[in-house]
């Protein structure tokens, strides 16, 4: 290997450096893009505020997948007792919170508290 002569090893190192810089650039890009609200997000936020929306329209196939936060307490098995979950998005969504620690029940025991 003579001075000034580029070997395959050097090329590999240059390529590695370029890829590392590109990976570092993604952090910068994400930080810059995440720091400001783009038009779509602003538009969405305005609509959420105006209409009082509570959920994303990601899964529109069933009531409890369209509005997971507003669903019945026994969603996702809500069609009738012992109904099996059959919507594909059901496997993508977290089980209802009351299967573990409930999200709503903590309010219940506190109702006796004074004004």
């Amino acid at each position: 290997m003579t001075r000034g002569h580029r070997t395959r090893g050097d090329l590999a190192l240059v390529a590695l450096l370029a890829l590392t810089l590109a990976a570092a650039a993604t952090f910068l890009h994400a930080a810059l893009a995440g720091g400001r609200l783009d038009g779509a997000t602003r538009e969405g936020r305005n609509l959420v505020a105006r209409l009082g929306l509570t959920d994303l329209a990601l899964f529109t196939e069933a009531r409890y997948t369209r509005h997971p936060t507003q669903a019945d307490r026994h969603a996702a098995f809500q069609d009738h007792p012992m109904a099996l979950e059959h919507f594909p998005s059901g496997s993508m969504m977290a089980p209802p919170p009351f299967f573990g620690r409930t999200a709503h029940d903590p309010l219940a025991p506190a109702t006796a508290s004074p004004d």
């Binding site: 993604t26 952090f27 890009h29 994400a30 930080a31 893009a33 995440g34 783009d38 779509a40 997000t41 329209a57 990601l58 899964f59 529109t60 196939e61 997948t65 919507f87 594909p88 998005s89 993508m92």
Partner: peptide, 21 residues
């Protein structure tokens, strides 16, 4: 295709990337 599930009306949306180091 995986996310869509059985949703007929699936929204088109662009995502702003976010990197968690």
């Amino acid at each position: 295709p995986v996310l869509k599930g059985w949703s007929v009306l699936y929204p088109d949306f662009a995502l702003t990337p976010q990197v968690d180091p």
